[in-house]
Every structure is written in C-alpha cells, then in structure tokens.
Amino acid sequence: MTNIKRYIEEKSFVFEPYLLERVEILEAPVSIKESMAYSLKAGGKRIRPMLLLAVLETYGQKAEKGLDVACALEMIHTYSLIHDDLPAMDDDALRRGQPTNHKVFGEATAILAGDGLLTYAFELIASSTAHSPEHLIKLIQMLASAAGPEGMVGGQMADMEGEKRMLSLPELEYIHLHKTGRLLAFSVMAGALIGGADKRETALLEKYAQHIGLAFQIRDDILDVEGTEEEIGKRVGSDESNEKSTYPSLLSMAGAKEKLAEELKGAYDALASLGRPAPLLESFASLIVERTT
C-alpha cells in the first residue's frame, strides 16, 4: 500500500497555503478573518480534502483540479466543529489540541466565523474555473445535501436528541452515516464526478465511502475511551459524560473493534471490484481504522 502519511504531507504543501490564502484575500473585517483562519490553521487530519484529491489521482487527474472543492469541504467541516464546540451544543474548551474558537474570540464571533466558512464554501466552488458549469452545479448540490438537514446537520440533531437514552444500533448508524459519513462520502463522490468515474464505478465508490464513514466514527468512539487528550487533541470520555450511545457502549469494546474490522473489509471489497488500482484509497481506509488521533 501507499505510504498515506507521506502522501498527505506532500499534498499539504500545496493545500494548506491555498486554503489559508482563500481567507486572506477576503474583503472582510480583520476580526472575522482571524477567527476563521484560527480554526482552519488548527489543522486536524485533513482526511476529507485529501481523500477527494486521492480519488482524483486514482482516475489519473491532477490533484490541483480539485483544490477549490477540497478547500470548500474543509471549510464546511471546520464550521461544523466551531459550532459543535459552542456552549449550546457540546460546550468544549479544547479542539485539535488548542482552545476552541469561542474561548479565544467569544461566542458571537465564533458563530459568525462558522457562518462565514459555511457560506464562503459555496462561493468558492461557484467561482472555480476548473470545472464545467454542469459539474459546478452538481458539486454545489452534492455538498449542500451532504452538509444540510438530510446530511450532517440532520445527523447532529439526531445525535443531540439521542443523548441521555440508549439508542438502538440502527439509530446509532443513522447518526453516524449522516453526522460524519455524509461529508466523507462527499469527498469520494466529488472526486468520482470530477475524475470521470462511470456509473458502475461511482456505485462502488459510494459503497466504499459508506464503509469508511462508519469506520471513522467507530474508531472515534473507541478513541474516546482508549485514547489520550494529547493524542486526540480534545478531552476524552466526553461521550460518556454527555450520556451518548456509542459503538463500545452498545456492542462492548470487543464488539466495536469487530464491527470496525467488518467495515474495513467492506471498503476493501468495494475497491477490489472497481477494476482499477486504488492503492491510495486502500491506504486511506487503513489510516481511518488505525489512526490514534
């Protein structure tokens, strides 16, 4: 398999300055730009944008072709974290190893920074010159669906409503397929659209995306129990303190790890049927399952 950490490091040399420059060039108050850039600079794993670029390269396209869409995706993800951390939601003081946005800039500015990242993401895609008008419209629709009430926002709502009660496994999977899985799936599906995947390949890549989306959240649940604050960059045990159902709480830790292995196998099986080498995508699946942060 490809050395995926090296791949991410190499692509980050292009992606990171491009991402931050999109904020620097805005004609907006310095305070809102600083708040937006603060959370973007915190880094994180960058799995979503890097996965999009990896799908493009799997289809023989240059990664640069997907930069605007990858940046928009990371902005959506970052806005959701800023809002998640607010006192009205998860009330977290630490994110990606540093104080959360509202702890540094205040709640009002943090809310506006999240709003700014959300709305600017769609402007960024709409103004991109790297894609046909048809593809731009489709990408905007796909991202809005993945991030909105039928996707991430709906999953977040179901997650909040599920606190302080024991969920069934289907209820928990609904939350994770929407709250986490839909944006991860967008990474793959956007790459498939831009890369020129046919209908059969797109269906297989969608299966792959669903498996790694669930795997990502199962691994998060495991790390919330077994990880350390230094490793994961936020407080551990937050799921238990918020009385949230998790894969370890429903299946036991051993059962959660077995479920994680099943999702990894499902991702590999989908790629095996693709009919083209996909070492980058295989390595991303392994990274999601084995990560410690």
Rank of each mutant, 00 (worst) to 15 (best):
K33L: 06
S127E: 12
L250D: 00
E201H: 11
V55E: 02
V236Q: 03
L139G: 08
L20Y: 00
K41R: 14
M253W: 01
A272D: 13
T58V: 07
E230K: 14
A209R: 04
L73P: 04
I76V: 15
G275Q: 04
L26Q: 05
A215R: 00
I32W: 14
A203Y: 14
E163K: 14
T109D: 14
G266W: 09
I111P: 11
L281H: 03
L223E: 10
R291M: 09
G114T: 11
R182V: 07
A63E: 12
Q217W: 14
S168N: 01
D221C: 08
A63Y: 05
L169K: 10
S286W: 06
K265P: 00
F122W: 02
E163W: 03
R219P: 00
E230I: 14
V289Q: 01
S238E: 15
S238H: 08
M189D: 05
L139N: 05
L56K: 07
P279D: 04
A285C: 05
P277R: 10
D159L: 05
M142A: 11
P87Y: 02
Y120L: 12
A37N: 10
L260F: 06
E262P: 00
I32K: 08
E9H: 13
D159M: 05
I212D: 08
P170S: 07
A203W: 06
K207Q: 13
H102L: 10
K45E: 02
A93G: 09
D84E: 02
A63H: 10
A267L: 08
V14C: 13
L86Y: 06
L264E: 15
R96Q: 13
G191Q: 00
L169T: 03
A285S: 12
D90L: 07
R6V: 08
Y18T: 04
I8N: 11
R6S: 13
T58L: 06
G237P: 08
T293Y: 15
S31Q: 15
E161D: 10
D239T: 08
A144M: 11
G196M: 09
S31G: 08
M189E: 15
R291N: 07
E290H: 12
